[in-house]
């Protein structure tokens, strides 16, 4: 009786939502007939770094990578980039230039780097004055610190208060971010949410801005991520993506490739005891579309005025688009 009820429920849900997540959800609770599993999407092949895996395997493997690296994520970012990732993120927020009262969703933002920078920028008196804004730009081991916040800056009228919702698929990364927020004394203006970027648990037309930094290349279906971004943004809202990209200059690209494949996995092994995860991370960069192809994809998903800006010889790029 229970089995027939579950199959009945499964048929109803599949008919309505036609979502492969439904299959996985219900297969956790009930035995699913093999026919239902064979709808094609979960068996499709995709890349995990340079490996070929099914889409279902990729989600699990990516989850496992970030669960393994969560504790050392911030340290490794500093080590791999020589601290330059901080400059990239500082510049990213400057480009976003959020005003007070902005509602932001930061997707794949587990440890809170973008969220904390956003709150600091949007809540300070120097808001809008790029030259006077004080970002810590020099890398130093003694400066391994979180941004300083005055809690009074984050209190006040909810409508005029900037707020960031940090969404990530990985619980470990979110808990690291929560810990950092507690450490910095941030207890308002930020919410934490575990969710899938391809199927955000958020109403339409909710946010003023959507950011995703160094996360989209880990998603199985990049087009679905961008479509969801379009859905959850208000009209006039801005999509911004910071991601590793293609280096146009062949000589610089050669040096960058050597550094990526010869040095980064070694650093991963020394500092995080995890060669494989960092090998995946450098391979995944090479699988991501180039600047122009990603720009085209963003336009296809409905965004207008799509532009991109290369940083550090094209090692990373900031893509931006508006929901008009």
């Amino acid at each position: 009786m229970a089995a027939s009820m579950s199959r009945c429920k499964l048929r109803i849900l599949l008919k309505k939502y036609d979502n492969r997540h439904v299959l996985k959800l219900l297969s956790n609770s009930y035995t699913v007939e093999s026919g239902y599993q064979n709808n094609g999407s979960s068996k499709k092949k995709t890349h995990f770094g340079f490996q070929s895996v099914t889409e279902e395997e990729k989600e699990e493997k990516v989850y496992s990578v970030f669960k393994n690296v969560a504790d050392k994520y911030d340290l490794m970012n500093d080590a791999m980039s020589g601290g330059i990732h901080r400059l990239w993120k500082d510049h990213f927020i400057r480009r976003l230039n959020p005003k007070q009262g902005t509602k932001l969703i930061d997707v794949a933002g587990g440890t809170g780097d973008i969220a904390f920078r956003f709150l600091k920028y949007a809540c300070t008196e120097n808001n809008g004055n790029l030259n006077d804004f004080d970002f810590t730009s020099d890398f130093s081991a003694e400066d391994f610190e979180m941004p300083d916040f005055e809690s009074e800056q984050l209190l006040g009228n909810q409508e005029h208060t900037s707020h960031v919702t940090v969404c990530d698929i990985n619980q470990s990364m979110l808990e690291v971010g929560q810990g950092r927020a507690s450490q910095a004394g941030i207890n308002q203006g930020i919410s934490w949410l575990k969710g899938n970027a391809e199927s955000l648990p958020v109403q339409d037309n909710t946010f003023d801005a959507y950011t995703i930094a160094f996360g989209i290349r880990n998603c199985t279906h990049i087009d679905k991520v961008v479509e969801e971004a379009y859905r959850v943004l208000k009209p006039g809202g801005r999509f911004m993506c910071l991601e590793f990209s293609r280096v146009p200059n062949p000589l610089i690209r050669r040096v960058y490739d050597e550094y990526s494949f010869q040095v980064i996995p070694v650093l991963g092994q020394i500092l995080a005891s995890d060669w494989d995860s960092y090998k995946y991370l450098v391979e995944s960069i090479r699988q991501f579309p180039c600047q122009e192809d990603f720009k085209t994809l963003i336009q296809t998903c409905g965004f207008s005025a799509v532009t991109y800006e290369n940083l550090t010889f094209g090692v990373v790029a900031i893509h931006s688009g508006f929901k008009l």
């Binding site: 009820m5 579950s6 429920k9 849900l13 979502n19 997540h21 439904v22 996985k24 959800l25 219900l26 956790n28 609770s29 009930y30 698929i169 619980q171 979110l174 808990e175 929560q178 934490w192 949410l193 575990k194 969710g195 899938n196 199927s199 648990p201």
Partner: peptide, 25 residues
């Protein structure tokens, strides 16, 4: 609407579909 429950872990709502629990009829 669809009879599922999403857990909240350490104050963080987990809205990943495959982590949900189907409610009994």
């Amino acid at each position: 609407k669809i009879g599922v429950a999403y857990p909240i872990v350490n104050g963080i709502p987990n809205l990943v579909p495959q982590d949900a629990r189907v409610l009994k009829e």
